[in-house]
Nucleic acid binder design. Structure first.
Lengths: 129, 129
DNA sequence: TCTAGTGTATTAGTTTCCTATTACACTATA
DNA sequence: TATAGTGTAATAGGAAACTAATACACTAGA
């Protein structure tokens, strides 16, 4: 996998897994790949995977069972809260950035709309990928 | 100033200065504060400021004149290109993030609109700050 | 010409992230 | 009960970012 060298890898791994949970690719109760397997597929050290997991466990989203594996919490509320938290974080960061550039609110909406019309034509159906 | 500990400080300094240039708070030809002054006001080491400047100089946005100071390029085209580049980068990052969460294109637009209505009411006029 | 204000470079030391390696703890099952 | 598959911990070493301190190079103006 490709990583942004401006952000810690463990943090990007956490983001990827959270995204998969929110997108439903990892459902509540699902078992994650083994840490050693994750490390191989991400081309990263086991300790780096473990660090990402540590934070997700501390946040209650991942449940760890020694000897068995790591699992997505079966508490759907936690997943739902995570989703809202992340969406709001992304919205805020995006809005703050453009607002700092003195782009007006209407312009921000227009830019997003135009961007989606330009780039998003083929990706409107979210069923496949 | 507050920094995000997930991103190198020098990179965040670069972002702040670029934002000020694009927002017009630093106009083409304007002189930047002295590096030592910037270091103090950002509560950061001179070398860290210098590293941010180095990249902006290499990218042609800042012109350095030894003994005189650092200046925003007076080439308005470069500034305009920078603006488009950054806006597009922010749009792409935002869109990719939400799309990864399986948020549909229409939902993305709706979320942005709702967010702005919620948060942006008092900031619609961009003349003051 | 001296001095203050500017950018630039270098060296040394700390912290964080990441890797590599090894070891340990627990579970399920042949 | 052995073994394979799992999570967890600890140590050591390297690389990048940041700080601190010092020195050097250039400009403008008294």
């Amino acid at each position: 996998m490709e990583f942004d060298d401006k952000v810690p890898i463990y943090y990007q791994i956490k983001t990827v897994i959270y995204d998969q949970i929110i997108a439903g690719q990892l459902a509540p109760g699902d078992k994650l790949p083994a840490v050693r397997q994750l490390a191989v597929s991400l081309t990263v050290n086991v300790n780096t995977v473990q660090r990402a997991l540590r934070e997700m466990i501390d946040e209650g989203v991942i449940i760890s069972q020694r000897g068995k594996g790591n699992f997505v919490t079966d508490n759907a509320d936690i997943v739902e809260q995570l989703k809202e938290k992340l969406i709001n974080r992304y919205l805020k960061q995006f809005y703050d950035r453009l607002h700092r550039l003195k782009i007006s609110n209407q312009q921000i909406i227009d830019e997003v709309t135009a961007y989606i019309e330009r780039q998003g034509d083929l990706n409107d159906n979210n069923a496949e990928s």
